[in-house]
Structure formats: C-alpha cells, structure tokens
C-alpha cells in the first residue's frame, strides 16, 4: 500500500507566491494531471513533489505500508522525467543506467540495462555518447533512468515532449503500466495527455 500526500504546498519566488496551498492525496493505482498556463508553477510544483525543491510551506509525505519514507530517501521511490532534466553528454546510456542502478540499490547487470533500453527503443545505441543523441532519444533515455528501479511514484513533466509517434506510444505503455502498479503524477498542457488521468488539479483555479 502506497500513499503519496502533498499537503498545502505554497512556493514563493522574490516575495511573490507562485502558488498557494496546493494539496492532493493519492494511493495505489491512482494518477493525477496537473494543468495550468505557462508560468503557473507546474514544474516547480512537480519538483517539490519529487523532493528536490523545498516548499515555502506545506509538506510532502510518502508512506509505503506502515513506513513513512524519509525525505532523503524519496529518490529511491520516485522516477522523474522532464524536458529540463539534463543528462551527461560525455556518458553513454549504459553508464547512466549503471550509475542509477548503483545509487538506487538495483543489482546492475547487462540484462537489466538491455531490458529497460528495449522498453524505450534505445538498445542499439546503448554504448554511444549522449552528445550524439537527438532530443527525442534523450527523452527516451530519461524514461529509462526513471523506470529502471520500478518506482512506486512516477512524476512526468510534459510526458511526450520531443517524442515522435513511436515514442508517444512507448510513453503510453509506461504510463498504463505505472497506473496499474503505482502512482502517476504528471503536468501537461496537451489536451490528449490530460486523458491519462481522471483526476485533474488546475493550479490556476486553485490560486484564483
């Protein structure tokens, strides 16, 4: 049983609130779409949900079974994909995934890497430097790093940005699998993507 609680989150930059008192609570096999205009704070909100940005006020809690997860261990339970998430140009996909395996206590083996790269259709480029990749291929690799440890919570910002038709299909499969096995939180401006979830949180409405 997983519980993901985002409670009364507010964030301000330069004394101005970007958003105030945003909350949601999700459990297993649940998802939520975060929508709002450009600059409404969707990405900031997702970063706070992922535990990489501190809120001005409010709290984010992850509970697995009866155990509350410490904030420093959020990364072990969260997968995150966003256009502004940058990869290392001088490393290969295998090296990226090896690093993620090692840091997240996933047993590193060739078969694990190959399986996840197959899922995102990058198996033929596993030893090429990321600097030679297109933005779509980088986006696929970000998905591979995010799903490698089978996270309980998957957070996606603009899930299909930079992706072609095949890539969008891959994302759809990943999203469906995640909704079956865990929790999905994503931010989008794309009306088609809004249909991934029946729960919608409109940041602007919440702030008006």
């Amino acid at each position: 049983m997983i519980e993901f609680s985002v409670l009364n989150i507010s964030k301000k930059f330069n004394k101005k609130f970007v958003f105030e008192n945003l909350s949601f609570q999700l459990s297993d096999s649940n998802s939520i779409a975060i929508i709002g205009k450009n600059g409404s704070g969707k990405s900031t909100f997702l970063k706070i949900c992922a535990g990489v940005l501190s809120p001005f006020s409010g709290n984010v809690e992850i509970k697995i079974g009866s155990k509350n997860i410490d904030k420093t261990n959020f990364f072990l339970h969260i997968g995150f994909v966003a256009p502004y998430l940058q990869l290392y140009d001088e490393l290969t996909p295998t090296e990226h995934l090896e690093f993620c395996c090692n840091m997240k206590n996933v047993k590193f083996s060739k078969s694990v890497i190959e399986k996840v790269l197959e899922e995102v259709n990058l198996e033929n480029r596993k030893n090429d430097f990321v600097r030679t990749f297109s933005s779509g291929m980088k986006q696929r690799l970000k998905y591979a790093t995010a799903i490698l440890h089978k996270p309980e919570i998957l957070i996606l910002d603009e899930p299909t940005v930079n992706l072609d038709k095949d890539g969008c299909e891959t994302v759809k499969k990943i999203v469906e699998k995640q909704i079956q096995n865990g929790i999905l939180v994503y931010a989008t401006n794309n009306l088609k993507e809004e249909n991934f979830s029946s729960n919608v949180l409109n940041i602007e409405k919440n702030n008006s």
Binding site: K47, A50, V52, T72, N73, F75, I78, F80, A82, Y84, L85, Q86, L87, Y88, F99, C100, M103, K104, T145
Partner: peptide, 8 residues
C-alpha cells in the same frame, strides 16, 4: 537535477 534525483 539528475544527481538530485539519483543520490543523497
């Protein structure tokens, strides 16, 4: 961000 998402 990549480092923040993958390590303590």
């Amino acid at each position: 961000l990549f480092l923040q998402l993958n390590s303590k």
